[in-house]
Each structure stands twice: as structure tokens, then as C-alpha cells.
Design a protein around this nucleic acid. Structure first.
Lengths: 366, 366
DNA sequence: GTGAAAGCGCTAACAA
DNA sequence: TTGTTAGCGCTTTCAC
């Protein structure tokens, strides 16, 4: 046999078989079931493969045949710059990635960002070669959630408080945790509270102002359920303390930048100057608000109490009073649920524990 | 025709065709070439699809046929906890993700972390359903790099200073940039310099101590070329200034944690107490070193000059003297190169600009 | 230990 | 506008 030159066409399992004058099965076995052929033959197969530049069975063809893609899809509707700038979201991704890595599965970031139209995004979900999906923090009217569900693959929804038929859920008790923190703040004596929240609706591409006062109307139309839950938690605490939740000043921060919390804080304090406590639905918001207050010469917690939510490292380092939630574990669990589905095959709902961190940024009203 | 019940088997394009008594082409066209059939028929196809729970053409089968996977693979050999904790690496991923998103491609994180054996990792690379690879900061002896190359798909290597046949490269002039910064430091009058570097070798799974003095032997056996280049930059500057580069105290930090830089700084100063400037090959190291110095009551830059590399936001915020590099753009460019390969089809080498930031942490020796 | 045959579900010529 | 025909490259019974 002459050493054939590098073939013009890409080598395939079939061409290898032809070259070696054995059946395709044998080549397949060389890669997938070493015990099904002699070590000797196997070596020869690999040698020829190397010579022909054959890197092994085509992943796509194999997937088609075995009906396994070897990857899970992650759908995050928010812009990636958002997800990558919030340590809580990032930790979640890290946890999910770790879970995938442990079982040798890939993690596919599905392209559904704001640079794409709804149709394009839907197309990306429909054409993702994955064995299951994780959907992170979708609003209840998220169009991609529907598309994911259509694919009828195993799906895990993270931070999605309401039930969705056929999908498992992983999250925390946002409302209860926030209520507990608010109980603490109110217990310190605060009566006039400002609440800074993230975006409540999913107006794609609408350029809103940086921060806006939340009207009752807007509040009832909240699509990001996690935000709604945390707000409800504060209201629960107020009601329980005999305060009127209607008095709560809520400001929504449309953007998610380093100064967003400050902008929101400014608006809240301008709206109600009697506010003595600023509660935030995310640590990044609280940190930004604290920076703003410091720049204004307002002491925390002496003149203003500030609280957050998430328990990100920077917040803990700065002694923020907040709720710590296990973001990394949420990711791990979401992945594990996909990789080792419960025996019953039925969707599960997992609520992870949280912890109120009293911190050093909450004190009696000044 | 009676409304058939939900079929036991998953609906396929063929079953849809049978149900509607049209050819498979017609169904395929309904999804891929709307103009190839009447709007009316197309509607009927979609309606039946919905009824049968058919979410559209199977992505894997389509990939096999079209020879397009619709995703790019990202290979990062370092543990993900590392990559996700260094803003520079993270920004790179964000840039890459953005580039993918813009063209509707998925981004597949390939499972090659430390929790997997070499074989498993290689398997993950070989079975990744992607149209191309991006390899981030591989050491020159990285086993996965070879495997990626074997697949003969378009590949872009990021931060890989030496040429690899057939692959494009994106990076910066690490050596030149570091030299420029070192010129500045030496120009300030520093003669005794400590250099804190990241891991130089890729001992998988070996539990080394937190920090170690780098011997000439170790230095010449450095596999992480980026580290080697930055070290060489400092030595260049010393040589040019008439100093003996052999006098440089180099400490290697095995881990990558919040206190790693401090540990390394401690060792460097213990080794050579006359050191007046600590140069670091990464901002995260420098920040940690500064925290350590502050805890020791050593003023920066009064008693000790500290410099970094990367230009991450926290470093800039703290006024660190450092080299700013365009991490995000590296990711974008790597992706763009994959999505819009140069007309020539030949690999390209792109060197992005850097900027020395003088900052406030470098001053004359105390 | 090895081979033959039968698809996995889809798309792309080319015909009709 | 619709249908026919051929695969894409692989794995997997089942027989030898």
C-alpha cells in the first residue's frame, strides 16, 4: 500500500475503513469500544487516522445518531454585559459551569441578547444543539421561555417564582427573605423607607431614563417576578408593623451600571426627603447608593440606613446589611438537576436557604 | 382527517409531511424558505406542527446536513473559578460573547477544567459541535491546544505569543508593555525590584504552596508565555538601565485568590528586604499586595511602589500604576476573526494596543 | 473479532 | 409550487 497523500476531502470514518479495508463498524469500535477489537488493529486504525488527519468521529453525526448533544443551553435574556457585571449572576453561571464540567458536558450560551430580534433569538433557541436548557431570571412574559418550552427538552428555570408545567425550578424565598430584612429595618425604628429596585418590565430597546418612580400601576404590571417578590416582602413587613405599604417610595433603575444605585437613591430622596432607610433589591444597587451618599456627605448608617440583597463579596467586605443567597449553588443545582434528573422524572421545585446579614449599614434612624 | 392525538414518538419533519400528505421538502421549505410555498400552505404546516408538538427542524440533523454547528467553542484550560474571578479574563469572555451574539452564534464553554482527566478533556474538545475554536491563554505545552488543532477547524489563539501553524492569534505586546512600565519605575529611581507573577507552569493537580521563589531554572522552563513575556519585559528594562536582571526577585503565585498577591509580596520582601518596588504581572495580584501592605502599615507609594497589569476597573479606581489592555476587544476581535475570516483565508496575527497608566501607586523609592 | 444493513432527521439539487 | 432522490457521517443490532 502506498502512503496516500493528504486527501482533498476531509477524512471520514468510512474513508478510513476503505483505506484499511475493514468495515466501518470496526473503526467505530476502535473509538467507542476498545474491547471489541484487537489492540493491534486498534493501533493501526489510530495510526492511519493520524496520517489521514482524521480526528475521530464527527461530533454532529454522532449526536444525530445517539440523540445526545453533550451540552446544556443557558438562556439569559438580559444583556450579557449585565450578567457579567453582577457578581451574583456571574456566580450562578460559574456554579452551572462547574456542574457541567463535572459531568463533561459543554455549556452553550445561547445568543438571545438585545442585539438580536425576537425572531433571531427564537431561532437561536430552536437551533441550539443541546440536551436541556437552563433559563435564568426570565420575566413572566419572556418570549424565549415559551420557545424553550416548545422544544420539550428538560428545562430548569432559575429565579422564576411561578410554576411552569414541565419545568423544574430552582430559587430562593425572595419574598420571605426580604421581609425578614425589612422586619429588621423596621424594628430599628424606620418608618419612612425608600426601596430601590432593578428593572420591573422588559421593554426591549426602549430608552428609558436612568431611574423612575414606580407607580401602583407599574408595580402591578411587574414582569420580573423576583423584583416583585422582594418588593412584596418589604410591603409585608410594613403591613405587619402597622405601616401603610402605599407609603413606600419605590424607584426603579432601568440601567445597570456602576452609578445606577446613586441615581435611584437621588430620586428616592428627592421624592421623599423624610426617608431614613434605603432598601435595595440588589447589592450592586446598594453599593452604588452608598457611594452616592458618601459623596453627598451623608453618613451610613448614622444618617441613612442602606440594605442590599445577594451577599456578593464586595458587599460583605463593606459590611453591607443584606440577604446572602447561594448564587453559586443555584447554578450547581440547576446543572445537577439536568444531569441527574430525579428518578420520578417529574419536575421539582427547589428552594435554597438564605441568610439575613445584619452588617454595619443599618442602624436606628438618625 | 381526525385530529390525531399527541403521538407517542416525537414528531419529525417526515411525520409532519405524512400527516399533511405533502413532501418533506415542503415542510423544510416552510421553515427555511418561506417564499418557496404559498402562505396558505405554510400556515397549515405551522398549525399542524403546533398540534403535533413539532418545534421545527432538529438542530443536530440540520447541522449534519449543512455542516454548520452555529456555535464557537471556547477552550480555557484554567479552572473556571479562576477565569470568572479575574475581571480581565471575564471581560475577554464578554467581548467574545458579544461578537457571537451579534452574528447569532452560540458560545460553547468546552469542559476541560481540572475536574476532568486529560482524556476526558480531549474528548470534550473532540466532541464539541462547533464551527471553530477560541483558545484562551494556553500554555505552550497545553495538551488541549494540540487536540483543538487536530480538529482542523478555524481556530483563534488568544494571548499566545508564539506562532502556531494554521491558527490566527490575537494578543498584545506583553513584553514591550511591561518593559515600558518598568522603564518608568526604574526611571523613578528604583533599583531593587520584586516581581510577582502568576503561575508559570501547568502542573495539573499538584498541590503547591501558595507562593514560591522563582529560580532561574524554573524561569527558563516557563510554559505560560504571557507570564514569561512580561517578566522578560522587566528584565529588558533592567538591562537597558545597566542593572543586573539576575538580581530581580521573582515570586510565583500558584493560586489565584483574593490574598494570593499578599502572600507573594510577603515572600518577596522576606527574600529581599531592600525591595522598593513590587511589580505584578496582573492587577488582581497588585491589589491583593496593596491590601497586604496596608495591613502591615506600609504606605504606597511612599514606602513601596506597586504596579499591576491589565487595567481592570477596580485597579483604575484605586489609582494603580499599571498597563491597560483592551481585554473586551480581544474577545470581540477573536470572535470577529472566526465569524468573518480574512478574505485570504490565511491566519492573521493581531496585536492590540496597550497604554501605560502612571497612576498614583508608583513614586520615588522611600 | 468483524461485517452488512438500516437508519438518526434533515437539506439541496434537480425534476416535474 | 411541489416532489424525488441522494446523501451528510455516524452507531447499532444482528449475523457470521
Amino acid at each position: 500500500m502506498s502512503r496516500s497523500p493528504v486527501p482533498r476531502r476531509r477524512a471520514t470514518l468510512a474513508s478510513l475503513a476503505a483505506e484499511l479495508k475493514v468495515s466501518r463498524t470496526t473503526i467505530s469500535n476502535a473509538y467507542n469500544r476498545p474491547d471489541q477489537l484487537s489492540a493491534d488493529l486498534r493501533e493501526r486504525v489510530f495510526a492511519t487516522a493520524k496520517r489521514l488527519g482524521y480526528a475521530g468521529p464527527d461530533p454532529v453525526a454522532r449526536s444525530l445518531r445517539t440523540r445526545k448533544a453533550g451540552a446544556v443551553g443557558l438562556v439569559i435574556t438580559e444583556p450579557l454585559t449585565y450578567s457579567f457585571s453582577d457578581p451574583a449572576a456571574l456566580n450562578f453561571v460559574a456554579g452551572l459551569a462547574e456542574s457541567c464540567e463535572d459531568v463533561g458536558q459543554g455549556l452553550l450560551l445561547v445568543a438571545v441578547g438585545p442585539s438580536r430580534t425576537l425572531e433571531e433569538g427564537a431561532g437561536a433557541v430552536l437551533s441550539a444543539g443541546v440536551d436541556g436548557f437552563v433559563v435564568y431570571a426570565a420575566s413572566d412574559d419572556d418570549p424565549y421561555l415559551q420557545v424553550v418550552l416548545e422544544r420539550r427538552l428538560p428545562a430548569v428555570l432559575v429565579d422564576h417564582p411561578t410554576d411552569v408545567p414541565g419545568a423544574s425550578r430552582v430559587g430562593i424565598d425572595d419574598r420571605g427573605a426580604m421581609r425578614e430584612l425589612a422586619d429588621y429595618v423596621i424594628g430599628l425604628g424606620h418608618r419612612e423607607i425608600g426601596l430601590l429596585a432593578m428593572r420591573l418590565g422588559s421593554e426591549r430597546g426602549v430608552g428609558e431614563p436612568g431611574a423612575a418612580l414606580v407607580t401602583p400601576d407599574r408595580l402591578s404590571g411587574t414582569h420580573f417576578q423576583v423584583q416583585a417578590e422582594r418588593i412584596a416582602g418589604v410591603r409585608d413587613a410594613m403591613t405587619a408593623a402597622g405601616l401603610d405599604p402605599g407609603e413606600l417610595t419605590i424607584v426603579e433603575s432601568a440601567e445597570h451600571e456602576a452609578t445606577s444605585g446613586g441615581t435611584a437613591a437621588e430620586l428616592a430622596l428627592a421624592t421623599n426627603p423624610r426617608i431614613t432607610a434605603l432598601m435595595c433589591t440588589a447589592d450592586v444597587l446598594a453599593i452604588s447608593a452608598m457611594d452616592y451618599l458618601r459623596a453627598r456627605g451623608i453618613y451610613v448608617p448614622g444618617q441613612m440606613t442602606v440594605t442590599g440583597f445577594d451577599g456578593i463579596p464586595e458587599a460583605l467586605k463593606r459590611g453591607l446589611s443584606t440577604v446572602a443567597q447561594p448564587s453559586f449553588e443555584k447554578g450547581r443545582l440547576a446543572g445537577d438537576l439536568l444531569h441527574n434528573p430525579p428518578r420520578s422524572g417529574l419536575p421539582v421545585v427547589d428552594v435554597l436557604p438564605t441568610e439575613v446579614i445584619r452588617g454595619r449599614t443599618a442602624g436606628p434612624p438618625g
